[in-house]
Design a protein around this nucleic acid. Structure first.
Length: 593
RNA sequence: GCCAAUGUAGCUCAGCGGUAGAGCAGCCGAUUCGUAAUCGGCAGGUCGUCAGUUCGAAUCUGACCAUUGGCUCCA
């Protein structure tokens, strides 16, 4: 998204297309009420309150009518009106009246947020449609290319985005300068579907979610579990090499624990109902922090012990509303690669530096190089002393600067217990996903009242940092699948090479090759089926196996394998030992492709 | 949770009032082949679940469950 999207012709075009659509809808439903209809990233939408639900056939009709309106080449005419005049123009449009009142009351925009400048009320007329609108628009409907507009789908949307308000029908459309760009956009959507982790999860037999088990509860199949195992092993090695200590904690804890932590006050609606036994209530854990704190509290801690870094791949359960689950990216049971750092105030800047650069190192190791950072600061309602907030925010910001990481400020976007840095990554199609989070916590040290003994012999409260790098391993895996389109780098591939004997007489040799490679620690299999070589290649390609090793008479004679990459590239015949060296190098260097 | 759509064999889908079909995958057999699908045969389904309407329901109705696209929420 370019920064001046709002000044672009594309923006005006989409905004204008939204008006044309609204006109077509109102012609079809004269009693319909209109809400708002702005341009969005790849198109536009308009929200309506209509007498009945829209059908796909309605959309076709509306789209056809839009083309007629475009061909009529009606001008868009802007007028400025007083609030009183506006009220008269829109007297049968309650949502517009509400908007007018917002403008009149000293500036509230269409989303209900206050705006600074004194608003001018403007309307735009085009043909039979009049809309309360700040613009801007094209000069005429004819400037929209009728072949570059398409209505995409209908969705429910609450008026002003508030679930207490009535639900409207939102029609999403897309519009481009040329039919070619529309075609490209639709092609991009098709490509995105091919990379969808849910589709690839099935095709590559990576994971599933079973109705019998429950919604949002992931089953990792052998192939997916292999990738996870390899990712976790790397994660473990890196943590051990970087001053972390591993801990393990249970899945449930007593109600009092969650009362102390504040979860029952602030997080209860995301928690599963308690399990009662021997008159005690136990809750399934939605987070790991209280357990790690109890470990910290289990002994007297000296400043000499700090910083302490407790890490755990902790499986947590959170109740998510039924409509929000999404493949691996939003689930009810997931494993966080969690850690809690305890340090002195003096150590804090260095600790932040460390955890930020460690996060980046981990993400980059998985091929994520386009990383976007967000710094979220103190919200209105916040626990802890404002001075400590300022320190912590400054430390986070300084760290981002030292890491030379571009970041955006999310003013007031911190958690109630502390400011944070979130790292988001883009997949190949430009969608942004949050993985890592580095959060300060001023709340739990107070609530659990834990301390360390400083040089002067007195007890002080340590600073506490929560962090998750992959975030949730489920989500991380989902994004990893989409990032690579299922073609994992060699070091992560469940099967790294398939050996393809051309005829049965080559099977024995194929097995020998397999043994040599397996002994070297490579994951290989032999396709011994009596199918033709071409069929075996096709299957291996579809399973996105990095290397296909064809063995026939020639190879058998020379102790070679003929190598084909999943990209289709042919490397030709190579000694078995040379291939072994090549593959091991790929693994060691985490080569992609 | 809300709005809408969808749910038929392992997968992708057709059938839409007269008791279930294809391709791929699977199994069996034949084939032994040089860089993206060899041929033939066999087997496979309480048509999401539970009610209801009907002489008769995969097909119509309702409730529930799940999925998809949004909204809200979360991060």
């Amino acid at each position: 998204m370019s920064e001046n999207y709002e000044d672009s012709k594309l923006y005006r075009l989409r905004h204008s297309a939204a008006h044309v659509m609204a006109q077509a809808v109102l012609e079809k439903f004269p009693s319909g009420k209109v809400a708002i209809g702005p341009p969005v990233d790849d198109g536009f939408y308009y929200d309506f309150d209509l007498p009945r639900p829209l059908t796909p056939e309605d959309l076709e009709e509306i789209e056809a009518r839009m083309r007629e309106i475009i061909k009529a080449n009606e001008p868009f005419i802007r007028e400025e009106v007083s609030a009183e005049e506006a009220r008269q123009i829109f007297d049968d449009q309650p949502y517009k009246i509400e908007l007018i009142e917002g403008l009149e009351d000293g500036g509230i925009d269409e989303h209900g947020n206050p705006v600074d400048e004194k608003p001018v009320i403007s309307i735009y007329k085009s043909d039979t449609f009049v809309d309360l609108c700040r613009g801007p628009h094209l000069e005429r409907t004819g400037q929209i290319n009728p072949k570059a507009v398409k209505l995409m789908n209908v969705a429910g949307a609450y008026w002003r985005g508030d679930e207490h308000n009535p639900m409207l029908q939102r029609i999403y459309g897309t519009a481009w300068l040329s039919p070619k760009e529309l075609k490209q956009y639709l092609w991009r959507l098709e490509e995105a579907k091919k990379r969808d982790h849910r589709k690839l999860g099935k095709a590559l037999d990576l994971f599933s979610v079973s109705d019998e088990v429950g919604s949002g509860l992931v089953l990792w199949h052998p192939n997916g579990a292999k990738v996870r195992f390899l990712a976790e092993r790397f994660w473990e090695d890196e943590h051990l090499a970087n001053g972390y200590e591993f801990v393990y904690t249970p899945h449930i804890g007593k109600a009092d624990l969650w009362k102390t932590s504040g979860h029952l006050d602030f997080f209860a609606e995301n928690m599963y109902a308690p399990i009662e036994i021997e008159n005690q209530q136990y809750y399934l854990k939605p987070m790991n922090c209280p357990f790690h704190i109890e470990i910290f509290k289990s002994g007297i801690r000296s400043y000499r012990d700090l910083p302490m870094r407790f890490a755990e791949k902790g499986t947590v359960y959170r109740y998510e509303r039924s409509g929000v689950m999404h493949g691996l990216l939003r689930v009810r049971g997931f494993t966080q690669d969690d850690a809690h750092h305890f340090c002195t105030p003096k150590q804090m800047p260095e600790e932040i530096d460390f955890v930020l650069s460690f996060s980046l190192h981990i993400l980059r190791s998985f091929g994520f190089n386009e990383i976007k950072a967000y710094l979220s600061t103190r919200p209105e309602k916040a626990a802890g002393d404002p001075e400590r907030w300022r320190d912590a925010e400054a430390a986070l910001e300084a760290s981002l600067k030292r890491a030379e990481l571009p970041y955006e400020l999310d003013e007031g976007g911190g958690a109630f217990y502390g400011p944070k840095i979130d790292l988001k990554i883009q997949d190949a199609l430009g969608r942004e996903w949050q993985l890592s989070t580095i959060q300060f916590d001023f709340n739990l040290p107070e609530r659990f009242d834990f301390t360390y003994i400083d040089e002067d012999g007195h007890a002080y409260q340590p600073y506490m940092i929560h962090r998750a790098l992959m975030g949730s391993i489920e989500r991380f895996f989902g994004i990893l699948i989409e990032h690579y389109g299922g073609a994992f780098p060699v070091w992560l591939s469940p099967v790294q090479a398939v050996i393809i004997p051309i005829a049965d007489r080559h099977v024995a040799f194929a097995r020998e090759v397999s043994k040599v490679l397996k002994d070297a620690g490579l994951r290989v299999s032999v396709d011994e089926r009596s199918d033709r070589m071409n069929a075996k290649i096709r299957d291996a390609e579809q399973q996105k196996v990095p290397y296909m090793l064809v063995v026939g008479d020639r190879e058998m004679e020379n102790n070679q394998v003929d190598i084909r990459r999943r990209s289709g590239e042919r490397l030709g015949a190579m000694l078995v030992d040379d291939f072994k060296a090549l593959a091991l190098k790929d693994v060691a260097e985490k080569v992609e492709g």
